[in-house]
Design a protein around this nucleic acid. Structure first.
Lengths: 146, 146
DNA sequence: CTAGATGCAAACAGTTTGCGTCACT
DNA sequence: AGTGACGCAAACTGTTTGCATCTAG
């Protein structure tokens, strides 16, 4: 039930209340390996806080993502998206509004490995440039000014 | 109701039956802009084939993806995935079994733009190396031999 | 004391499945 | 003629929402 001083600070720095559940969720993600799903995190957290609800896990994961205390593997789109651009290209993805636009392959210098991954048969490489699109960065500038 | 000769060939080359619905779905994706969802494609296809079912659209999109006639924007995971690795890294993603493993950032030479995208405020760059993991490439080798 | 956090259940969205019928090869 | 495709509805999975209760600040 106790909340550690450093977690309390971390929350305070982001304007979040330091709750026990929140701490356990955070610690659990940090302690896991690989790329767990919310469900997997939930199962794991439940061992320490049996009464926790899945909604609370989702809720907190989203807060952590928004505050950049945690990262997601790749910007999660809830539906499949098809490519219509037949030319090799990469993507500019707005982390705020999730808009995706194409970046011609040639706008990037060719990618080179220092050390090739062993036993992995590469088919293609896709680069996601994450950031704020012009609309969203204009908005966040305005927010900072006021 | 007619099926074009080139589409017929395309299907034949991949061992697929050349059906009218299939053709319209394919043409529709090719004709759209951006990164449409199956739902959006469905709505669009419906204008030409009002009786089409959403299941058929999904069915065909998956066939096109498997046969590499179309590509998806980023390997679609049906659930959110969290990073547990706090070090900067990229991903090796198996297009067959969808397994994700980490690739230390330093195994790749730093990425450089030839032309920086205008009006986009870059936060970070995430590289997905798509291909077959060792297990899946062993399996597909065996299939080719037999 | 009050804004925000939690837990629960119900709602939702996107996708898949099972099955009877139909069409391509 | 037979395999695979289609259309429909029902099932499923992952996620979100509304609301009553509780707790940190």
């Amino acid at each position: 039930m106790e909340i550690k001083a450093d977690f309390r600070q971390l929350c305070h720095a982001h304007g979040l209340a330091a709750t026990y559940q929140r701490q356990i969720i955070y610690e659990t993600v940090r302690s896991l390996q690989g790329h767990p799903s919310p469900e997997a995190i939930y199962e794991c957290v439940r061992q320490r806080v049996p009464s926790i609800s899945l909604a609370t896990v989702y809720n907190n994961l989203h807060l952590f993502l928004k505050n950049e205390l945690l990262q997601e593997v790749s910007l999660h789109q809830k539906s499949l998206r098809l490519e219509t651009n037949p030319h090799p290209h990469h993507h500019l993805i707005c982390v705020n509004c999730k808009a995706i636009s194409d970046l011609d392959e040639r706008q990037l210098q060719p990618l080179k490995f220092r050390k090739k991954p062993q036993g992995f048969h590469i088919k293609r490489i896709s680069v996601d440039v994450l950031g704020l699109c012009s609309l969203c960065s204009a908005k966040s500038d305005r927010r900072k000014q006021s």
